[in-house]
């Protein structure tokens, strides 16, 4: 882990919110030179703190029929490895968008996207459920996304603001 100061945190916060913020603006906001800003970002990338630059996509609006499901798994942990080895195997499937070890009734929680309900069912039945050490699965289909990664998808009218006030 590399030590981070206030300015690094500012860069991370602004980039997490909008990774297309120009370096010139980042520099001004964080009170740094552009050169210094670039070097800091490279350092954050190299250290694996910034993993990737991506977009939050509202696929519903893009007309996609893709189906996303939360799949919960009860897993028998392995001696010496716990849940890690099975988790690594599951993570290799491209359909698996996120994978977490959870407290509670189930152990692993997956977010899976596929082109149809049928595809989800096939994936669970043919790929996941038969794996060794998977004791139980529960598949929960996402019906509608209201907020993703801090971005609200619901349409809301603009709030009226006066053009002038003291």
């Amino acid at each position: 882990m590399i030590p981070l100061d206030e300015k690094d945190l500012t860069l991370l916060q602004v980039l997490e919110e909008n990774c297309r913020t120009p370096v010139s603006d980042l520099a001004v906001m964080a009170e740094l030179s552009e050169q210094d800003t670039r070097e800091r970002i490279e350092r954050l990338e190299a250290a694996g703190i910034i993993r990737r630059y991506t977009a939050v996509v509202d696929w519903g609006r893009a007309g996609s029929d893709a189906v996303t499901a939360v799949i919960e798994l009860k897993v028998s942990p392995e001696r010496d490895f716990g849940y890690d080895r099975i988790a690594e195997r599951i993570a290799r499937f491209p359909q698996v968008r996120s994978l977490r070890l959870m407290t509670g009734t189930y152990d692993l929680q997956l977010l899976v996207t596929a082109s149809s309900m049928h595809e989800i069912a096939r994936f669970v039945a043919e790929q996941i459920a038969p794996m060794d050490r998977i004791r139980e699965t529960a598949t929960l289909i996402i019906m509608k996304t209201y907020k993703e990664n801090g971005t609200t998808f619901a349409v809301r009218g603009e709030v009226e603001r006066l053009p002038y006030s003291f």
């Binding site: 603001r161 006066l162 053009p163 002038y164 006030s165 003291f166």
Partner: peptide, 18 residues
């Protein structure tokens, strides 16, 4: 100024104290 701005659609207002 207020009256002029009210007639415009695409005003960016740096005029508000809120």
């Amino acid at each position: 100024f207020f009256d002029i701005a009210q007639t415009m659609e695409d005003v960016i207002s740096l005029g508000v104290g809120e």
